[in-house]
Design a protein around this nucleic acid. Structure first.
Lengths: 216, 216
DNA sequence: AACAATTTTTAGACTTGTCTAAAAAAAATA
DNA sequence: TATTTTTTTTAGACAAGTCTAAAAATTGTT
């Protein structure tokens, strides 16, 4: 098995890999609030275990094995988040830190039972897909609301920003997962948008429109 | 907050304190599968934090603060065990190791919600009492079946031995928490006992009779 | 192409928790 | 009481993971 620190590195590298093909030492250091020198050490260790590909000064990528482990941790994280929201009635902005601890509980049987207990959810409370035990999941095609044109419609299905502040704002505006929206106006001046959200009208900034994701 | 190792030491010292007033270095080492030298180091550290009372060569006792922390961990352990058995349908002999990890999840709010979700259970699946957030709980008076005389009755309410093997044996013999028993015979030769357990008849050894606890 | 700025790595140190081997204290025994 | 046995502590070492400061490599700029 891998240590807590190793698991956190693999997870961070996985998330960073979604934006860039290769992940730099500094990127990892920033993501984990640690120093570049520490990252170099750990990255060498993970490369020795063949969980990542690493060439000095060239950044890292996950190997197939490393990616699978990262996805297993992410699977656990998202299942626990679902549990916390659906069973224990936490709000979607409250669960991240707890899931950050729970994701490291090792028992596979526990995760299987938890999955069954919740009837095999496919998405966590923020709309992120929950991988299966093999790390497989269909990555649905989400687009930011900002990419919509006038009168286009969609269903809110995810967020690009997971910070509590953003999630609380969305909750207050009723901009939550599953809501149907329609773009009723786009303000040229600042690219802000007027949305119709199941009856009510909401005005969102360009910033929000970029971080709120929909399926059409 | 305390580290994982510190929490495990406090918990071990608490459990050992139930049998002895003062707990020795070797006892702790045995309980945690570590070496006496390691215990001496950690014990000095816990004494510095005023979680235990420690005089060289004299063994240790928990301070009020240390005991409270130990009981909070035990509370979490037992609540998680209850969850695993009652919600995820694990057997009572399968949950210890998982609870051993889950008990270190830090969120107090999580424990409050979990407690509420399960409607505030008072005992874990093995009959052990679940302390409240302040570490308080009524220690019910349990006695081993071995202490009963002919024709006396009781309700199975706890076990003194928590090993999977013993628990599996009890399960197979239907000797589970809540069952009403009556001593219908005591074999002089080996002090084994014949029990009537809700209709059926079971023969248990002296060894089992000492480790199976009842209330009258 | 040469210099400056940035990124990454190396070197050496520190903390936590562990270990072994040896010394010291306490307990048991004769 | 003296001696042996057991327990506990000390001393020194090690692995994991982190850090700072300095060196090396890469990238950017004129």
């Amino acid at each position: 098995m891998n240590t807590l620190a190793e698991e956190n590195y693999l997870k961070a590298i996985y998330h960073l890999s979604l934006n860039d093909l290769s992940v730099s030492t500094n990127q990892i250091a920033a993501a984990l609030c640690t120093k570049a020198a520490s990252v170099t050490d750990m990255v060498r260790k993970l490369a020795d275990k063949e969980l990542i590909n690493y060439e000095k000064y060239q950044g890292v990528t996950l190997t197939a094995v490393g990616e699978k482990i990262a996805l297993q941790i992410i699977c656990k994280h998202r299942l626990w988040e679902y549990f916390l929201v659906e069973k224990l009635n936490f709000k979607w902005d409250e669960v991240h830190e707890m899931a950050e601890e729970l994701e490291h509980i090792s028992s596979v049987e526990l995760i299987d039972r938890l999955d069954k207990f919740m009837d095999y959810p496919k998405h966590d409370p923020h709309g992120d897909p929950i991988p299966d035990r093999e790390g497989k999941f269909k990555k649905h095609e989400l687009r930011p609301i900002a990419s919509l044109k006038l009168n286009e419609v969609g269903i809110i299905s995810g967020v690009r920003d997971h910070t509590p502040g953003f999630l609380q704002y969305l909750e207050k505006q009723q901009l939550t997962i599953g809501k149907k929206i329609k773009v009723t106006d786009i303000i040229e001046y600042d690219n802000s948008m007027i949305l119709q959200v199941e009856g009510t009208i909401t005005h969102i900034s360009r910033e929000v429109a970029k971080n709120l994701l929909i399926v059409i």
